[in-house]
């Protein structure tokens, strides 16, 4: 059963959180789930909730949460910067360790949530900030932010063309705009600098992890793509890659059977 509630972000925003209590008592590290953003969050909501339920059934305390300005959380998406998401993750981690009594958590993130989880673990590695990451599971993480921003831009253009039939105008997603304006991205108000924040991400050069990590490539292919290979090589010897042939469920309106992904995570997580 989910226990729903709110935790508080450093700026005072209430962050929606759902705690899945472990079905059996277990000393195993709890799992903090980091969701993706925008439409991907909506499309992946059911899959991540189901995964949380299976992890809890396997004895893991699990916490899901929404970043400020996202989902059921308070705060404004128009004011959100990438650094705020890291702060929100830290607040959720603190809540999970408090509830579970554990000192370390497994960070599990999808898409930009996976990117955030990896960055968080890397920060711990460099001793710059928080430690306490037992392991990371990154599902289809975005490793090069500029590629993601380009895809957002294209997607924005596609949406505009489909809705107006035109194809005119500058796609709303682009850096360098008036710092005081907000941008409409798929119906979400976004701070223009947020796209610059994301474009600056490059996990290929971020350094090696000091905790175990599983990166799951989710795509039409069963062999590693160049991007995945580069990422895992950059993350160092503690990182491992699994390739899963599965539709990108975070892009689909229809239900996709994510059972095979859950099986990979459930198989891996006892080692963490």
């Amino acid at each position: 059963m989910d226990q729903l509630g709110y935790i508080t972000a450093p700026d005072g925003s209430p962050l929606y959180a759902a705690y899945h209590a472990p079905v059996q008592g277990s000393p195993a590290s709890p799992v903090l789930i980091c969701a993706p953003l925008f439409e991907e969050r909506k499309s992946a909501y059911g899959a991540l909730r189901k995964l949380a339920g299976r992890l809890a059934a396997a004895g893991r305390p699990v916490l899901r949460f929404d970043y400020r300005g996202s989902g059921e959380s308070g705060g404004s998406s128009a004011a959100r910067r990438w650094s705020h998401m890291a702060e929100d993750l830290a607040a959720a981690r603190e809540a999970l360790t408090r509830i579970s009594g554990a000192r370390e958590v497994v960070l599990l993130g999808l898409r930009l949530g996976g990117t955030l989880a990896l960055q968080e673990a890397l920060r711990g590695t460099a001793g710059q900030a928080r430690s306490g990451t037992a392991a990371v599971i990154a599902l289809a993480p975005v490793s090069v932010g500029s590629h993601q921003v380009r895809q957002w831009k294209m997607r924005s253009q596609i949406r505009a063309e489909l809705t107006t039939g035109g194809g005119t105008g500058v796609p709303p997603v682009a850096g360098g705009q008036d710092a005081h304006a907000t941008l409409d991205f798929d119906g979400y108000d976004v701070h223009p600098a947020f796209f610059d924040d994301v474009a600056a991400i490059d996990l290929h050069t971020a350094g090696a992890l000091s905790c175990p990590a599983l990166v799951v490539q989710i795509s039409h292919r069963t062999e590693p793509a160049g991007d995945s290979t580069k990422l895992v090589a950059a993350l160092g010897p503690q990182a491992r890659l699994e390739c899963l042939r599965l539709e990108p469920f975070w892009e689909k309106l229809d239900d996709v059977d994510t059972g095979p992904l859950e099986d990979i995570v459930l198989k891996q997580v006892p080692g963490f």
Binding site: Q151, M154, R155, I158, R159, L162, E251, K252, L253
Partner: peptide, 11 residues
């Protein structure tokens, strides 16, 4: 084919 899948064709 959904809009985001057109992007996959571009890639």
């Amino acid at each position: 084919v959904e809009s985001v899948q057109l992007m996959e064709i571009v890639i």
